[in-house]
Design a protein around this nucleic acid. Structure first.
Lengths: 229, 229
DNA sequence: TTTTGCAAGTGTAAAAACTACATTAATAAA
DNA sequence: TTTATTAATGTAGTTTTTACACTTGCAAAA
Protein backbone atom coordinates (compact mmCIF):
# COMPACT_ATOMS: atom_id res chain seq x y z
CA UNK A 1 0.00 0.00 0.00
CA UNK A 2 1.13 3.48 -0.78
CA UNK A 3 0.20 4.79 2.62
CA UNK A 4 1.94 2.17 4.66
CA UNK A 5 5.33 2.98 6.08
CA UNK A 6 5.73 -0.34 7.82
CA UNK A 7 5.54 -2.51 4.76
CA UNK A 8 7.86 -0.38 2.64
CA UNK A 9 11.25 -1.77 1.71
CA UNK A 10 14.38 -0.20 3.09
CA UNK A 11 17.54 0.16 1.10
CA UNK A 12 21.14 1.14 1.50
CA UNK A 13 21.89 4.66 0.45
CA UNK A 14 25.38 5.57 -0.70
CA UNK A 15 27.07 8.78 -1.74
CA UNK A 16 29.68 8.90 -4.49
CA UNK A 17 31.82 11.96 -5.10
CA UNK A 18 33.24 13.23 -8.34
CA UNK A 19 36.14 15.36 -7.17
CA UNK A 20 37.46 17.78 -9.74
CA UNK A 21 40.86 19.37 -9.60
CA UNK A 22 42.84 21.44 -12.09
CA UNK A 23 46.53 21.82 -12.73
CA UNK A 24 48.87 22.67 -15.59
CA UNK A 25 47.97 19.39 -17.25
CA UNK A 26 44.25 20.05 -17.29
CA UNK A 27 41.07 19.02 -15.55
CA UNK A 28 41.36 15.97 -13.32
CA UNK A 29 39.29 13.73 -11.10
CA UNK A 30 40.36 11.94 -7.95
CA UNK A 31 39.87 8.18 -8.05
CA UNK A 32 40.54 5.46 -5.57
CA UNK A 33 41.77 1.91 -5.92
CA UNK A 34 39.09 -0.03 -4.17
CA UNK A 35 40.50 -2.17 -1.37
CA UNK A 36 37.51 -4.34 -0.58
CA UNK A 37 35.20 -6.67 -2.44
CA UNK A 38 33.45 -6.59 -4.77
CA UNK A 39 35.66 -5.18 -7.51
CA UNK A 40 38.65 -4.97 -5.19
CA UNK A 41 41.61 -3.44 -6.98
CA UNK A 42 39.52 -1.64 -9.58
CA UNK A 43 39.26 2.14 -9.83
CA UNK A 44 36.26 3.79 -8.33
CA UNK A 45 34.88 7.12 -7.22
CA UNK A 46 35.30 7.81 -3.57
CA UNK A 47 32.14 7.09 -1.71
CA UNK A 48 30.50 5.76 1.39
CA UNK A 49 27.18 4.98 2.98
CA UNK A 50 24.73 7.45 4.40
CA UNK A 51 24.38 7.22 8.16
CA UNK A 52 21.08 7.14 9.92
CA UNK A 53 21.50 10.54 11.51
CA UNK A 54 23.12 12.29 8.59
CA UNK A 55 21.80 14.32 5.68
CA UNK A 56 23.17 13.62 2.22
CA UNK A 57 25.09 16.89 1.98
CA UNK A 58 26.91 16.06 5.18
CA UNK A 59 27.67 12.53 4.07
CA UNK A 60 29.29 13.97 0.96
CA UNK A 61 31.26 16.45 3.06
CA UNK A 62 32.35 13.71 5.45
CA UNK A 63 33.49 11.43 2.65
CA UNK A 64 35.42 14.19 0.94
CA UNK A 65 37.08 15.07 4.21
CA UNK A 66 37.98 11.48 4.96
CA UNK A 67 39.92 11.10 1.74
CA UNK A 68 41.39 14.55 1.26
CA UNK A 69 41.46 16.19 4.68
CA UNK A 70 39.64 19.16 3.18
CA UNK A 71 36.85 21.23 4.72
CA UNK A 72 34.61 23.92 3.32
CA UNK A 73 34.58 22.72 -0.21
CA UNK A 74 32.07 23.53 -2.90
CA UNK A 75 29.86 20.49 -3.42
CA UNK A 76 26.64 19.99 -5.27
CA UNK A 77 24.24 17.07 -5.43
CA UNK A 78 23.80 15.61 -8.88
CA UNK A 79 21.67 12.54 -9.34
CA UNK A 80 20.36 9.36 -7.71
CA UNK A 81 21.34 6.08 -9.38
CA UNK A 82 19.10 3.14 -8.66
CA UNK A 83 19.56 0.29 -11.11
CA UNK A 84 18.68 -2.91 -9.28
CA UNK A 85 22.03 -4.62 -9.65
CA UNK A 86 24.27 -1.60 -9.85
CA UNK A 87 25.97 -2.90 -6.72
CA UNK A 88 26.09 -6.70 -6.85
CA UNK A 89 26.33 -7.17 -3.09
CA UNK A 90 23.17 -5.49 -2.02
CA UNK A 91 20.51 -3.18 -3.34
CA UNK A 92 22.12 0.22 -3.03
CA UNK A 93 20.92 3.53 -4.32
CA UNK A 94 23.71 6.02 -4.77
CA UNK A 95 23.44 9.78 -4.85
CA UNK A 96 26.30 11.46 -6.67
CA UNK A 97 27.91 14.74 -5.67
CA UNK A 98 30.64 16.74 -7.28
CA UNK A 99 33.28 18.80 -5.58
CA UNK A 100 35.71 21.40 -6.86
CA UNK A 101 39.04 21.50 -5.10
CA UNK A 102 42.38 23.14 -5.44
CA UNK A 103 44.62 20.28 -6.41
CA UNK A 104 47.51 21.63 -4.36
CA UNK A 105 45.66 21.93 -1.09
CA UNK A 106 44.63 18.43 -0.20
CA UNK A 107 46.42 16.14 2.17
CA UNK A 108 48.79 14.19 -0.04
CA UNK A 109 49.62 11.65 2.62
CA UNK A 110 46.00 10.90 3.18
CA UNK A 111 45.22 10.29 -0.44
CA UNK A 112 48.28 8.06 -0.74
CA UNK A 113 47.14 5.99 2.20
CA UNK A 114 43.87 5.40 0.44
CA UNK A 115 45.58 4.60 -2.86
CA UNK A 116 43.85 7.54 -4.41
CA UNK A 117 45.17 9.15 -7.53
CA UNK A 118 44.44 12.05 -9.85
CA UNK A 119 43.50 11.24 -13.43
CA UNK A 120 43.03 13.54 -16.35
CA UNK A 121 39.37 13.45 -17.37
CA UNK A 122 40.40 12.63 -20.91
CA UNK A 123 42.48 9.74 -19.75
CA UNK A 124 40.77 8.13 -16.78
CA UNK A 125 40.53 4.37 -16.34
CA UNK A 126 37.31 2.44 -16.55
CA UNK A 127 35.41 2.59 -13.28
CA UNK A 128 33.30 0.12 -11.33
CA UNK A 129 29.52 -0.06 -11.32
CA UNK A 130 27.90 2.98 -12.94
CA UNK A 131 30.67 5.37 -11.93
CA UNK A 132 31.63 6.22 -15.51
CA UNK A 133 28.10 7.42 -16.07
CA UNK A 134 28.30 9.49 -12.90
CA UNK A 135 31.49 11.16 -14.12
CA UNK A 136 29.94 11.99 -17.48
CA UNK A 137 26.96 13.53 -15.77
CA UNK A 138 29.21 15.56 -13.49
CA UNK A 139 31.22 16.92 -16.40
CA UNK A 140 28.04 18.00 -18.16
CA UNK A 141 26.86 19.71 -15.02
CA UNK A 142 30.19 21.41 -14.51
CA UNK A 143 29.99 22.76 -18.07
CA UNK A 144 26.54 24.07 -17.46
CA UNK A 145 27.57 25.64 -14.18
CA UNK A 146 30.38 27.40 -15.98
CA UNK A 147 27.88 29.20 -18.16
CA UNK A 148 25.80 30.56 -15.29
CA UNK A 149 28.16 31.05 -12.37
CA UNK A 150 31.77 32.11 -12.07
CA UNK A 151 34.23 29.29 -11.66
CA UNK A 152 37.86 29.10 -10.73
CA UNK A 153 38.03 30.24 -7.15
CA UNK A 154 37.68 26.67 -6.03
CA UNK A 155 40.02 25.18 -8.61
CA UNK A 156 42.88 27.63 -9.04
CA UNK A 157 45.66 28.68 -6.70
CA UNK A 158 45.11 31.99 -4.97
CA UNK A 159 47.17 33.92 -7.50
CA UNK A 160 46.85 32.92 -11.12
CA UNK A 161 47.41 34.30 -14.59
CA UNK A 162 44.84 34.99 -17.26
CA UNK A 163 46.28 32.11 -19.20
CA UNK A 164 45.61 29.72 -16.35
CA UNK A 165 42.04 30.88 -16.11
CA UNK A 166 41.64 30.58 -19.85
CA UNK A 167 43.05 27.08 -19.79
CA UNK A 168 40.71 26.11 -16.98
CA UNK A 169 37.71 27.22 -19.01
CA UNK A 170 39.05 25.49 -22.08
CA UNK A 171 39.53 22.27 -20.13
CA UNK A 172 36.03 22.36 -18.71
CA UNK A 173 34.31 23.29 -21.94
CA UNK A 174 36.67 21.17 -23.95
CA UNK A 175 37.02 23.72 -26.71
CA UNK A 176 39.44 26.45 -27.68
CA UNK A 177 38.53 29.99 -26.73
CA UNK A 178 39.66 33.23 -28.30
CA UNK A 179 42.08 34.85 -25.90
CA UNK A 180 41.03 38.46 -26.41
CA UNK A 181 37.32 37.79 -26.34
CA UNK A 182 37.73 35.61 -23.26
CA UNK A 183 39.58 38.30 -21.38
CA UNK A 184 37.03 40.98 -22.13
CA UNK A 185 34.14 38.69 -21.19
CA UNK A 186 35.76 37.68 -17.93
CA UNK A 187 36.63 41.29 -17.16
CA UNK A 188 33.04 42.30 -17.70
CA UNK A 189 32.09 40.06 -14.76
CA UNK A 190 34.22 42.25 -12.53
CA UNK A 191 35.27 39.44 -10.24
CA UNK A 192 39.04 39.72 -10.66
CA UNK A 193 41.69 41.81 -8.95
CA UNK A 194 44.72 42.50 -11.13
CA UNK A 195 47.85 42.52 -8.99
CA UNK A 196 51.02 44.51 -9.65
CA UNK A 197 52.94 41.29 -9.32
CA UNK A 198 53.92 39.22 -12.32
CA UNK A 199 54.46 35.54 -12.86
CA UNK A 200 57.82 35.13 -14.61
CA UNK A 201 57.68 31.35 -15.14
CA UNK A 202 55.71 31.44 -18.33
CA UNK A 203 57.50 34.03 -20.42
CA UNK A 204 60.26 36.62 -20.47
CA UNK A 205 57.80 39.43 -20.46
CA UNK A 206 55.98 37.90 -17.50
CA UNK A 207 52.25 37.91 -17.06
CA UNK A 208 50.19 39.71 -14.46
CA UNK A 209 48.79 37.73 -11.58
CA UNK A 210 45.18 37.99 -10.55
CA UNK A 211 43.15 37.03 -7.52
CA UNK A 212 39.42 36.61 -7.26
CA UNK A 213 37.54 39.40 -5.59
CA UNK A 214 35.87 37.12 -3.09
CA UNK A 215 32.97 39.44 -2.32
CA UNK A 216 31.97 40.00 -5.89
CA UNK A 217 32.60 36.37 -6.74
CA UNK A 218 30.18 35.23 -4.08
CA UNK A 219 27.63 37.80 -5.09
CA UNK A 220 27.76 36.39 -8.60
CA UNK A 221 27.41 32.87 -7.21
CA UNK A 222 24.05 33.83 -5.79
CA UNK A 223 22.71 35.51 -8.89
CA UNK A 224 23.04 33.45 -12.02
CA UNK A 225 24.07 35.10 -15.26
CA UNK A 226 24.56 34.00 -18.82
CA UNK A 227 28.12 33.75 -20.02
CA UNK A 228 28.66 32.85 -23.64
CA UNK A 229 32.27 31.91 -24.17
CA UNK B 1 33.41 1.60 8.36
CA UNK B 2 33.31 2.84 4.84
CA UNK B 3 33.83 -0.54 3.34
CA UNK B 4 31.30 -2.41 5.34
CA UNK B 5 27.95 -3.07 3.78
CA UNK B 6 26.60 -4.99 6.75
CA UNK B 7 26.93 -2.22 9.27
CA UNK B 8 25.44 0.49 7.05
CA UNK B 9 22.06 1.92 7.94
CA UNK B 10 19.11 1.29 5.70
CA UNK B 11 16.48 3.89 5.05
CA UNK B 12 13.12 4.29 3.43
CA UNK B 13 13.26 5.77 -0.03
CA UNK B 14 10.28 7.64 -1.37
CA UNK B 15 9.45 9.27 -4.68
CA UNK B 16 7.43 12.46 -4.91
CA UNK B 17 6.07 13.73 -8.20
CA UNK B 18 5.48 17.28 -9.29
CA UNK B 19 2.90 16.85 -12.02
CA UNK B 20 2.55 19.84 -14.29
CA UNK B 21 -0.44 20.47 -16.49
CA UNK B 22 -1.54 23.43 -18.56
CA UNK B 23 -4.93 24.78 -19.51
CA UNK B 24 -6.52 28.11 -20.42
CA UNK B 25 -6.05 29.28 -16.86
CA UNK B 26 -2.31 28.68 -16.83
CA UNK B 27 0.27 26.29 -15.46
CA UNK B 28 -0.97 23.91 -12.79
CA UNK B 29 0.19 21.15 -10.50
CA UNK B 30 -1.73 18.12 -9.33
CA UNK B 31 -1.97 17.79 -5.55
CA UNK B 32 -3.58 15.27 -3.32
CA UNK B 33 -5.39 15.54 -0.03
CA UNK B 34 -3.49 13.14 2.14
CA UNK B 35 -5.74 10.48 3.64
CA UNK B 36 -3.40 8.97 6.18
CA UNK B 37 -1.33 10.12 9.10
CA UNK B 38 0.78 12.10 9.61
CA UNK B 39 -0.60 15.32 8.17
CA UNK B 40 -3.85 13.62 7.15
CA UNK B 41 -6.11 16.06 5.34
CA UNK B 42 -3.28 18.37 4.28
CA UNK B 43 -2.27 18.90 0.67
CA UNK B 44 0.71 16.98 -0.60
CA UNK B 45 2.52 15.95 -3.73
CA UNK B 46 1.69 12.58 -5.13
CA UNK B 47 4.21 10.06 -3.92
CA UNK B 48 5.01 6.60 -2.74
CA UNK B 49 7.76 4.34 -1.57
CA UNK B 50 10.37 2.70 -3.73
CA UNK B 51 10.02 -1.07 -3.91
CA UNK B 52 12.87 -3.44 -3.46
CA UNK B 53 12.85 -4.61 -7.07
CA UNK B 54 12.15 -1.29 -8.68
CA UNK B 55 14.31 1.49 -10.07
CA UNK B 56 13.47 5.09 -9.19
CA UNK B 57 12.28 5.97 -12.70
CA UNK B 58 9.83 3.12 -12.61
CA UNK B 59 8.61 4.02 -9.17
CA UNK B 60 7.84 7.50 -10.47
CA UNK B 61 6.07 6.05 -13.50
CA UNK B 62 4.07 3.68 -11.31
CA UNK B 63 3.01 6.43 -8.94
CA UNK B 64 1.98 8.72 -11.76
CA UNK B 65 -0.02 5.92 -13.32
CA UNK B 66 -1.73 5.03 -10.07
CA UNK B 67 -3.11 8.51 -9.63
CA UNK B 68 -3.77 9.57 -13.20
CA UNK B 69 -4.11 6.40 -15.24
CA UNK B 70 -1.50 7.79 -17.63
CA UNK B 71 1.34 5.92 -19.33
CA UNK B 72 4.27 7.10 -21.42
CA UNK B 73 4.66 10.45 -19.79
CA UNK B 74 7.71 12.65 -19.82
CA UNK B 75 9.33 12.48 -16.40
CA UNK B 76 12.65 13.63 -15.11
CA UNK B 77 14.42 13.09 -11.83
CA UNK B 78 15.16 16.24 -9.89
CA UNK B 79 16.70 16.00 -6.46
CA UNK B 80 17.07 13.87 -3.34
CA UNK B 81 15.76 15.39 -0.10
CA UNK B 82 17.24 14.01 3.07
CA UNK B 83 16.67 16.23 6.08
CA UNK B 84 16.58 13.99 9.14
CA UNK B 85 13.07 14.84 10.25
CA UNK B 86 11.53 15.73 6.96
CA UNK B 87 9.09 12.89 7.53
CA UNK B 88 8.26 12.70 11.24
CA UNK B 89 7.29 9.03 11.19
CA UNK B 90 10.48 7.51 9.98
CA UNK B 91 13.74 8.50 8.35
CA UNK B 92 12.77 8.81 4.71
CA UNK B 93 14.81 10.14 1.84
CA UNK B 94 12.68 11.34 -1.01
CA UNK B 95 13.67 11.70 -4.63
CA UNK B 96 11.55 14.19 -6.54
CA UNK B 97 10.47 13.79 -10.15
CA UNK B 98 8.52 16.05 -12.39
CA UNK B 99 6.06 15.08 -15.07
CA UNK B 100 4.46 17.03 -17.88
CA UNK B 101 0.96 15.94 -18.79
CA UNK B 102 -1.87 17.06 -20.96
CA UNK B 103 -4.43 18.16 -18.45
CA UNK B 104 -7.31 16.83 -20.52
CA UNK B 105 -6.04 13.31 -20.86
CA UNK B 106 -5.89 11.93 -17.38
CA UNK B 107 -8.48 9.77 -15.76
CA UNK B 108 -10.79 12.22 -14.01
CA UNK B 109 -12.54 9.57 -12.01
CA UNK B 110 -9.29 8.25 -10.70
CA UNK B 111 -8.03 11.59 -9.50
CA UNK B 112 -11.37 12.26 -7.84
CA UNK B 113 -11.19 8.98 -5.97
CA UNK B 114 -7.84 10.02 -4.62
CA UNK B 115 -9.07 13.50 -3.69
CA UNK B 116 -6.55 14.93 -6.09
CA UNK B 117 -6.99 18.38 -7.52
CA UNK B 118 -5.31 20.76 -9.94
CA UNK B 119 -3.97 24.01 -8.54
CA UNK B 120 -2.59 26.98 -10.35
CA UNK B 121 1.10 27.27 -9.48
CA UNK B 122 0.54 30.85 -8.44
CA UNK B 123 -2.22 29.86 -6.12
CA UNK B 124 -1.37 26.48 -4.61
CA UNK B 125 -1.93 25.68 -0.95
CA UNK B 126 0.82 25.12 1.53
CA UNK B 127 2.14 21.57 1.34
CA UNK B 128 3.36 19.04 3.87
CA UNK B 129 6.98 18.30 4.69
CA UNK B 130 9.42 19.84 2.22
CA UNK B 131 7.04 19.60 -0.71
CA UNK B 132 6.89 23.35 -1.27
CA UNK B 133 10.63 23.34 -1.77
CA UNK B 134 10.29 20.47 -4.21
CA UNK B 135 7.75 22.41 -6.24
CA UNK B 136 9.98 25.49 -6.36
CA UNK B 137 12.87 23.39 -7.55
CA UNK B 138 10.71 21.78 -10.21
CA UNK B 139 9.50 25.12 -11.54
CA UNK B 140 13.09 26.35 -11.81
CA UNK B 141 14.06 23.20 -13.66
CA UNK B 142 11.07 23.49 -15.97
CA UNK B 143 12.12 27.05 -16.81
CA UNK B 144 15.62 25.94 -17.55
CA UNK B 145 14.41 23.05 -19.66
CA UNK B 146 12.33 25.48 -21.67
CA UNK B 147 15.47 27.31 -22.71
CA UNK B 148 17.28 24.25 -24.01
CA UNK B 149 14.63 21.86 -25.25
CA UNK B 150 11.29 22.30 -26.98
CA UNK B 151 8.30 22.12 -24.73
CA UNK B 152 4.60 21.86 -25.30
CA UNK B 153 4.09 18.49 -26.89
CA UNK B 154 3.50 17.02 -23.48
CA UNK B 155 1.37 19.83 -22.15
CA UNK B 156 -0.83 20.98 -25.00
CA UNK B 157 -3.67 19.28 -26.83
CA UNK B 158 -2.74 17.76 -30.15
CA UNK B 159 -3.90 20.78 -32.11
CA UNK B 160 -3.24 24.17 -30.64
CA UNK B 161 -2.95 27.80 -31.66
CA UNK B 162 0.11 30.01 -31.52
CA UNK B 163 -1.55 31.93 -28.76
CA UNK B 164 -1.87 28.80 -26.65
CA UNK B 165 1.79 28.02 -27.15
CA UNK B 166 2.72 31.60 -26.33
CA UNK B 167 0.63 31.49 -23.18
CA UNK B 168 2.25 28.23 -22.15
CA UNK B 169 5.70 29.76 -22.42
CA UNK B 170 4.54 32.88 -20.63
CA UNK B 171 3.11 30.77 -17.82
CA UNK B 172 6.28 28.75 -17.43
CA UNK B 173 8.66 31.68 -17.63
CA UNK B 174 6.26 33.88 -15.74
CA UNK B 175 6.89 36.87 -17.96
CA UNK B 176 5.29 38.51 -20.94
CA UNK B 177 6.71 37.73 -24.32
CA UNK B 178 6.53 39.75 -27.52
CA UNK B 179 4.16 37.91 -29.82
CA UNK B 180 5.96 38.54 -33.10
CA UNK B 181 9.40 37.79 -31.77
CA UNK B 182 8.08 34.67 -30.09
CA UNK B 183 6.55 33.39 -33.29
CA UNK B 184 9.66 33.89 -35.31
CA UNK B 185 11.84 32.25 -32.66
CA UNK B 186 9.54 29.27 -32.39
CA UNK B 187 9.33 28.98 -36.15
CA UNK B 188 13.09 28.95 -36.39
CA UNK B 189 13.07 25.71 -34.41
CA UNK B 190 11.10 24.11 -37.23
CA UNK B 191 9.15 21.80 -34.97
CA UNK B 192 5.64 22.92 -35.87
CA UNK B 193 3.24 21.91 -38.61
CA UNK B 194 0.81 24.66 -39.57
CA UNK B 195 -2.55 23.15 -40.46
CA UNK B 196 -5.08 24.54 -42.92
CA UNK B 197 -7.65 24.27 -40.19
CA UNK B 198 -8.54 27.21 -37.99
CA UNK B 199 -9.74 27.47 -34.45
CA UNK B 200 -12.81 29.72 -34.50
CA UNK B 201 -13.40 29.88 -30.75
CA UNK B 202 -11.03 32.64 -30.08
CA UNK B 203 -11.93 35.25 -32.67
CA UNK B 204 -13.92 36.07 -35.75
CA UNK B 205 -10.92 35.82 -37.97
CA UNK B 206 -9.98 32.48 -36.47
CA UNK B 207 -6.45 31.38 -35.79
CA UNK B 208 -4.52 28.66 -37.46
CA UNK B 209 -4.04 25.40 -35.62
CA UNK B 210 -0.66 23.75 -35.33
CA UNK B 211 0.60 20.34 -34.39
CA UNK B 212 4.07 19.38 -33.33
CA UNK B 213 6.19 17.65 -35.92
CA UNK B 214 6.93 14.70 -33.71
CA UNK B 215 10.08 13.62 -35.52
CA UNK B 216 11.73 17.00 -35.45
CA UNK B 217 10.51 17.62 -31.92
CA UNK B 218 12.20 14.48 -30.70
CA UNK B 219 15.34 15.23 -32.63
CA UNK B 220 15.50 18.60 -30.84
CA UNK B 221 14.89 16.85 -27.52
CA UNK B 222 18.11 14.94 -28.01
CA UNK B 223 20.25 17.88 -29.03
CA UNK B 224 20.01 20.82 -26.72
CA UNK B 225 19.83 24.32 -28.13
CA UNK B 226 19.73 27.78 -26.67
CA UNK B 227 16.45 29.59 -26.93
CA UNK B 228 16.31 33.14 -25.66
CA UNK B 229 12.72 34.24 -25.31
C1' DT C 1 75.47 46.61 -24.91
C1' DT C 2 72.97 45.04 -28.54
C1' DT C 3 70.28 41.65 -30.58
C1' DT C 4 67.05 37.98 -30.44
C1' DG C 5 63.14 35.29 -29.12
C1' DC C 6 59.05 34.59 -26.62
C1' DA C 7 54.66 34.98 -24.81
C1' DA C 8 51.72 38.99 -23.03
C1' DG C 9 48.84 42.49 -23.97
C1' DT C 10 45.70 45.16 -26.56
C1' DG C 11 41.37 47.40 -30.24
C1' DT C 12 38.32 47.44 -34.07
C1' DA C 13 35.36 46.56 -37.88
C1' DA C 14 31.97 43.40 -39.72
C1' DA C 15 28.35 40.21 -38.86
C1' DA C 16 24.73 38.38 -36.29
C1' DA C 17 21.20 38.56 -32.95
C1' DC C 18 17.87 40.91 -30.59
C1' DT C 19 14.44 44.40 -29.61
C1' DA C 20 10.65 47.38 -30.19
C1' DC C 21 6.88 48.43 -32.54
C1' DA C 22 1.88 49.46 -35.79
C1' DT C 23 -0.82 48.29 -39.68
C1' DT C 24 -3.55 45.25 -42.47
C1' DA C 25 -6.41 40.93 -42.99
C1' DA C 26 -10.13 37.77 -42.22
C1' DT C 27 -14.27 36.68 -40.46
C1' DA C 28 -18.85 36.61 -37.83
C1' DA C 29 -22.36 39.14 -35.95
C1' DA C 30 -25.24 42.99 -36.02
C1' DT D 1 -22.80 46.27 -45.67
C1' DT D 2 -20.96 47.83 -41.67
C1' DT D 3 -18.79 46.92 -37.43
C1' DA D 4 -16.10 44.72 -34.11
C1' DT D 5 -12.57 41.54 -32.88
C1' DT D 6 -8.46 39.13 -32.79
C1' DA D 7 -4.85 37.08 -36.12
C1' DA D 8 -1.07 37.83 -38.96
C1' DT D 9 2.89 39.98 -40.54
C1' DG D 10 8.06 42.90 -41.47
C1' DT D 11 11.64 46.18 -40.52
C1' DA D 12 14.87 49.54 -38.79
C1' DG D 13 17.76 50.52 -34.92
C1' DT D 14 20.52 48.74 -31.36
C1' DT D 15 23.27 45.57 -29.01
C1' DT D 16 26.12 41.69 -28.84
C1' DT D 17 29.27 38.70 -30.71
C1' DT D 18 32.85 37.35 -33.56
C1' DA D 19 37.15 37.28 -36.08
C1' DC D 20 41.48 38.80 -36.38
C1' DA D 21 47.26 40.84 -36.09
C1' DC D 22 50.56 43.90 -34.36
C1' DT D 23 53.26 45.95 -30.55
C1' DT D 24 55.36 45.55 -25.92
C1' DG D 25 58.41 44.19 -22.26
C1' DC D 26 61.67 41.37 -20.62
C1' DA D 27 65.51 37.90 -20.26
C1' DA D 28 68.92 35.42 -22.37
C1' DA D 29 72.33 35.02 -25.76
C1' DA D 30 75.64 36.92 -28.63
Amino acid sequence: MLNSYSSADKVLLAVDCIIFGFDHEGLKILLIKRDFEPEKGKWSLIGGFLKRDEVLDNAAIRILHTYTGLHDIYMEQLYAYSEIDRDPVERTISVSYYALINIENHNTELIQNYHAQWFSITDAPNLIFDHNEMVDFAIRRLRYRTSIKPIGFELLPEKFTMRQLLELYEAILSKELDKRNFISKINSLEILNKLDEKDMQSSRKGSYLYTFNKEKYEEKLLNDFVLNL
